[in-house]
């Protein structure tokens, strides 16, 4: 308990563009219980970062776990992390193990 999943990686996405530029699917009570990246839009901050990939599952955003969050709540947490002016980046803990 409390240990990172073995294949997880911390990715810091600088807010280098006006949009984050990812599409996610999944959330608690769906077939995909944690949000998975399904699209990365060219020219968005995530694309510019170069380290996020389609198929990765997002475990945490700025240290906040997405486990047990329904889709809309997970999306809101990610959107607010990108919108806040407190940081010039968003930290994602991702895994390719689904």
């Amino acid at each position: 308990p409390g240990l990172l999943e073995p294949t997880s990686a911390l990715v810091r996405v600088a807010k280098s563009a006006t949009t984050l530029g990812i599409a996610i699917e999944g959330g608690a009570n769906t077939r995909q219980p944690l949000p998975r990246i399904v699209t990365i839009q060219r020219g968005g901050s995530a694309h510019n970062c170069g380290q996020l990939k389609v198929g990765q599952v997002i475990l945490e955003v700025n240290g906040v776990s997405l486990r047990g969050r329904e889709h809309r709540e997970a999306a809101r947490i990610i959107a607010e992390a990108f919108k806040t002016k407190e940081r010039d980046h968003v930290d994602f803990l991702v895994t390719e193990f689904n």
């Binding site: 949009t19 996610i24 889709h71 990610i78």
Partner: peptide, 15 residues
């Protein structure tokens, strides 16, 4: 397995 099959697909949100 049976439970997984009954779970609905998720919507997709662009962020």
């Amino acid at each position: 397995r049976e439970k997984r099959l009954t779970l609905p697909p998720s919507e997709i949100t662009l962020l």
